[in-house]
């Protein structure tokens, strides 16, 4: 369970988030939606302790991120950022291998190596394992980074627009994988999405932000059933049902 209490944040004098209180249940996929500048990335950065908290608190299963040593948090939650440039010249295998660092602290054992090989297979990265990350396409690098966050084997997985740069095939593959992680491995996935139909198809819960506030929160089915998404994005978003699933028709 993720508990966010009275979270506010400002960049300089510009307020980004206003008094956000949220609790996300353990397990399942939660999608964070919202227009540009709503504060989605900031929220995720704060949840992942990439930026210091200014006001409010965040806790994972009662583990307050301000009071917990960062190396313990690294075994509790993993983050994949929007802009994920890699500082070092690394092969894909080495990069994914760093995901195991919180567990072995620099001395990988056979179990760590096995986990890395398994992830390489799972993400279709085995043929690329020996290539350097800077020689990959954007989408391939994105997959390698997702694999790295995956092998970190944390209860909670935070992803900031992981689909950007992925083609339809891998975007769907990733969303299905996130679903499987939630369903089969009991992990909790929080993902910022741009395209609301991926949320409609794969998310259990929706949190919609607007102007730094939680504008809408609830099970995906309920959120999509209502017409409440339209004002958040400031545009008409008709939702139809197709094979029992909501589909937003916002392209025309």
């Amino acid at each position: 369970m993720i508990e966010i209490r009275n979270l506010s944040h400002a960049e300089g004098r510009t307020p980004i988030l206003h008094d956000i209180t949220l609790s996300l249940p353990k397990g399942g996929v939660t999608a964070i939606l919202g227009p540009n500048g709503a504060g989605k990335s900031t929220l995720l950065s704060l949840m992942a302790r990439l930026r210091p908290l200014q006001a409010g608190s965040i806790a994972y299963d009662g583990m307050d991120i301000a009071a917990t040593p960062t190396e313990r948090l690294a075994r509790k939650l993993a983050i994949l950022r929007q802009d994920s440039t890699v500082g070092s010249r690394l092969t894909v295998r080495d990069l994914v291998g760093f995901g195991r660092f919180p567990h072995h602290r620099g001395r990988p054992g056979p179990a760590d190596r096995a986990a890395v090989e398994a992830a390489l297979g799972q993400f279709d990265l085995a043929p690329l394992a020996g290539r350097f990350t800077e020689e990959l396409s954007g989408g391939q690098r994105q997959r390698a980074l997702v694999a790295m966050a995956f092998v970190q084997a944390t209860d909670y997985l935070l992803l900031d627009e992981p689909l950007s740069g992925l083609d339809m095939y891998y975007a769907r593959m990733l969303m299905r994988l996130l679903r499987r992680l939630a369903e089969e491995h009991g992990r909790t996935v929080v993902v910022v999405l741009h395209e609301i139909n991926y949320a409609a198809a794969h998310a259990d819960r929706i949190v919609a932000l607007k102007d730094g506030r939680v504008a809408l929160e609830g099970p995906a089915a309920e959120v999509f059933a209502s017409a409440r998404l339209s004002p958040i994005f400031g545009m008409e978003i008709p939702v139809e049902r197709w094979h029992g699933r909501p589909v937003a028709l916002h392209y025309t």
Binding site: V86, F98, F101
Partner: peptide, 21 residues
């Protein structure tokens, strides 16, 4: 510090995410 420096080299966000102070 050699192993932790390897992680630092990935960049700030990666390093924090992997549990470095």
């Amino acid at each position: 510090m050699r192993h932790r420096l390897d992680v630092m080299a990935l960049g700030r966000d990666h390093a924090i995410s992997l549990g470095l102070d």
